[in-house]
């Protein structure tokens, strides 16, 4: 006797596939925002499933801060080639060179906020009407209020107090010229769900997620990778540690944790036992209590 209900992970997968198909029919020119991080990799994997046996009907869009992990870039290039997808790249360096944004200065300088301008410019240049992201509601308090289909005005801004109500599974993707949408197919997934899914589906992810030895600096309670972009403080020293990353962002702000988890099984076990949130190692979120909301309002991912 077969059962007629889905387990929660299959239900989440089915929901995400449904959302991706809605994006495809409701928009003219959607893209997948691809950072090389696990969430955007999972979204890409889900898109593969949603349109099989057709290939993924969206290009990938990468906002390149110039401060990348080399591993991420290689992974991105290999994946787009394997799936036969078009890759769009928005370059923060180009935005700086063109005088669209000004680089932050000092030891804590990052290009995190600068990405907003580059992203919005790339969306406008390519006439993108929907950018699909791997954002999850469990990540951060401002994201807890996100819709699956999230409207952005002509300035690319999010107005959290004036969002369209989203009922049942009916998504309203209507917009006027110049506006666009962000779509979040894995809104209802948690970090644990993402890892369980990666393990279940045996999805390939960048080596950075697995424990490895690396030159690092202890800063803001996490191990920041040493790189050509890192400005060392007076008392900071470069050490070699066995670490892995729980999230991937800019190489300058993504902190690693000490870990021996070098297989998916070990990572899942480790995540299950974690007592801190994954974004706890992201200095971009630590700037204020509402750092994420403030960036999201302006047009951040």
């Amino acid at each position: 006797m077969s059962k007629y209900y889905l387990n929660y992970l299959d239900e989440l997968e089915s929901e995400a596939i449904y959302v991706l198909r809605e994006v495809w029919v409701q928009f003219q020119n959607p893209v997948i925002l691809f950072s090389g991080g696990k969430d955007s990799i999972v979204v890409t994997h889900l898109a593969r499933k949603a349109f099989y046996p057709s290939k993924i009907p969206f290009p990938l869009l990468h906002v390149d801060t110039g401060h990348n992990f080399p591993e991420t870039i290689k992974f991105r290039n290999d994946l787009t080639k394997e799936l036969g997808l078009e890759l769009l790249v928005g370059s923060v360096q180009k935005s700086i060179d063109q005088g669209r944004v000004t680089e932050e200065k000092g030891k804590h300088a990052t290009r995190n906020a600068l990405q907003i301008t580059t992203l919005l410019d790339t969306i406008e240049e390519n006439k993108i009407d929907c950018a699909i992201g791997g954002g999850r509601r469990d990540e951060e308090k401002a994201r807890a209020k996100e819709r699956f289909f999230s409207h952005r005005d002509e300035f690319g801004q999010w107005d959290p107090k004036n969002q369209r109500p989203e009922l049942w599974n009916i998504f309203n993707g209507k917009y006027f010229e110049g506006e666009h949408f962000r779509a979040f197919p894995i809104s209802n997934w948690t970090e644990m769900d993402v890892w369980n899914y990666i393990k279940k589906e045996q999805i390939e992810i960048p080596s950075l997620y697995y424990a490895h030895e690396r030159k690092v600096v202890w800063r803001s309670n996490s191990w920041i990778p040493h790189s050509e972009f890192l400005v060392l403080g007076e008392k900071e020293e470069v050490l070699i540690k066995k670490i892995r990353f729980r999230t991937l962002g800019d190489i300058t702000i993504t902190g690693g944790i000490e870990s021996d988890a070098d297989t998916l099984e070990k990572i899942v076990d480790e995540v299950a036992a974690m007592r801190n949130t994954e974004r706890g190692n992201r200095s971009d979120d630590k700037r204020s209590e509402t750092a994420m909301e403030d960036r999201k309002r302006q047009g951040y991912f």
């Binding site: 308090k141 401002a142 807890a144 209020k145 959290p160 107090k161 209590e289």
Partner: peptide, 22 residues
């Protein structure tokens, strides 16, 4: 369950917020 800036300031929930636990 505090969420957006306005909600924190006013101490009330304005919008639907989604939370997860397992």
């Amino acid at each position: 369950t505090d969420g957006l800036r306005d909600e924190r300031e006013q101490g009330i929930t304005i919008d639907v917020a989604y939370r997860y636990f397992t």
